[in-house]
Amino acid sequence: MIELNNVSKWYGQSQVLDACSTRVAKGEVIVVCGPSGSGKSTLIKCVNGLEVFQQGEITVNGISVGAAQTDLPKLRAQVGMVFQHFELFPHMSITENLTIGQIRVLGRSKEAALAKALGLLDRVGLKEHASKHPGQLSGGQQQRVAIARALCMDPVCMLFDEPTSALDPEMITEVLDVMVELAKEGMTMMCVTHEMGFARKVANRVIFMDQGRIVEDAPKDEFFGTPRSERAQQFLSKILSH
């Protein structure tokens, strides 16, 4: 579904991604972790072309992201993305947030878009908030709306960029619950997160990044049981020590 081949990226002189390669098969859930500045957010943003990369190749559903002739908006419409800071559109109601992409990008009718939106809002447990604006919801609720907004587009896979790191602790669970459910339904997911509980529960593989490189790419049991690199061992012992 998602294939990265020797992807490298530079900001001017400094290299932020160094020959990253991995594949995410259909229905797989991959967790990407690593210290801050390791390039994991940049990597995931390369997958739907929000960040450009200078070397290597990424294909999503068979389409090359970096190719000049690729219709990026069309490609992105098939790839759901959830951001650290939710990024709901603050001037639109929740319903409008969920329907505008369906109407303007997919060309669905208003009625069809609304039906889809309400169905997904119900699924994330927020149907009664449909007519509110993002500013009137809590962070956890906003992030659940953001997930519903991405799902409204019937994506072939979902990218999560630290979806819980801007949330108060008591709201993390409600967002993770939605993600776990998605994973169990067979959604292809690539998640940048430090929620190791989530990784243990649903991830197929864990990718560990450091200084722009994929240092470890292993099935989750292997990763948590016997991480090969010293760097990953240090990282794990730090975040799992509490």
Partner: peptide
């Protein structure tokens, strides 16, 4: 992130 969210939506 607002620009990215718009683009990410297609």
């Amino acid at each position: 992130g607002q620009r990215m969210a718009g683009l990410a939506l297609g």
